[in-house]
């Protein structure tokens, strides 16, 4: 990800109200370097979860100022007793005390339990955990947000030379998680994407559910799925402008929309978020935009959970991790503001 004005603005927002971020993989050199950068900048309060002695040694080895960090030791029995009591009291907790204690031995799951009870605002992992493990852990311990049926991902394109309703930027989802969404899941992806993109950009979301058909120009099960998703999304979140089914050009080009969409729509021709109908389209769509339009993309960011969970790519460098932390913290701020 490039350091652009959006990220600069987000960084200032993150610094204005630093969130508490649990790092479950600070035993990794790159992650510790990123923690050092985040802490020194004042972007977030860094809470390192693992074997505290080893983490302190790693911080010293990497030249990170320990006084800027908090350490949570997996073997701190008093703290674990307290966490078990508070986590098991949550109505969303599905585990027995013994099962919770089993999970507290693992840094990622310990971090997620801390987040569930409100000790931290974000859980950050991905450099040594698989995306599947991060998603499953979040589903088990944080849970899905109300009215959301699936985890998913969202990103924001910056497309040189393109002029849409938000300049050269466009939100998109899901390109990474949900392979073949049901109508309920597709609606969930759209709702989550609206909330995530609004939190990061301040835009009023106008979200288009994409298809090969515009307003019934085509038919069949693929179209019916998208139409059903729109109906579910509108019913679940009538406050959001989510519309479709639209072809891509009907969604983002006012000229095309004026010819193809013969009904009132707050979204057609002016969409600032597009939702792919499945992961085939999502993956290919992102690569088309990146390859042929030389676009950069922020994300993909995980979404759909009750709280913010971030999964960076395994090959992420320090600046990419720092950018992911910044975006996660701004999302956490927005989540709190909306509670």
């Amino acid at each position: 990800m490039e350091d652009t004005s959006l990220l600069d603005a987000l960084r200032e927002r993150a610094k204005a109200d630093p969130q508490r971020v649990a790092f479950a993989e600070a035993d990794d050199d790159t992650m510790m370097d990123a923690v050092g950068a985040v802490a020194a900048e004042g972007v977030a309060t860094c809470v390192l979860v693992g074997h505290a002695d080893e983490l302190r040694a790693k911080a010293r080895e990497r030249g990170v100022d320990e006084s800027l960090l908090e350490f949570v030791d997996l073997d701190d029995e008093a703290a674990n007793d307290d966490l078990v009591a508070r986590f098991s009291a949550l109505p969303t907790c599905i585990y027995s005390e013994k099962a919770i204690r089993r999970r507290l031995k693992k840094p990622l799951e310990h971090s997620l339990i801390m987040e569930a009870v409100g000790d931290v605002d974000v859980t950050f992992a991905g450099i040594s955990s698989s995306t599947g493990d991060v998603i499953l852990g979040a589903q088990m311990l944080i849970g899905l947000a109300d009215g959301i049926d699936t985890p998913s991902s969202v990103g924001i394109f910056e497309i040189p030379g393109w002029e849409g309703s938000e300049g050269n930027m466009l939100g998109f989802g899901d390109s990474a998680v949900c392979q073949d969404p049901t109508p309920e899941q597709l609606a969930s992806i759209a709702i989550s994407a609206c909330d995530t993109v609004a939190a990061l950009t301040g835009w009023e979301p106008r979200c288009a559910l994409l298809s090969f058909s515009t307003c019934g120009s085509g038919d069949g099960p693929l179209v019916e799925k998208v139409v059903k998703a729109r109906e579910i999304a509108n019913e679940r979140r009538p406050d959001l402008a989510i519309d479709g089914e639209f072809q891509l050009d009907s969604a983002v080009s006012e000229r095309t929309a004026s010819r193809k969409v013969k009904r009132e729509s707050a979204v057609a021709g002016r969409a600032n978020i597009v939702i792919w109908p499945d992961l085939n389209v999502g993956n290919i769509g992102v690569k088309l935009v990146q390859q042929f339009a030389h676009a950069d993309a922020y994300g993909p960011m995980l979404q759909g959970f009750r709280k913010i969970v971030c999964d960076c790519s395994r090959g992420a460098g320090v600046s990419e991790i720092e950018g992911n932390v910044v975006m996660s913290c701004v999302r956490a701020q927005a989540l709190k503001a909306g509670e």
């Binding site: 599905i94 585990y95 099962a99 089993r102 998603i135 499953l136 088990m140």
Partner: peptide, 24 residues
């Protein structure tokens, strides 16, 4: 079902029988 159903199943097995079966 989906992953949420599997999570519900594995958590019940773990809680009731003390056997941890992973989603994987």
């Amino acid at each position: 079902g989906g992953s949420m159903n599997m999570i519900a199943l594995t958590s019940t097995i773990e809680n009731e029988l003390d056997v941890e079966v992973t989603i994987h």
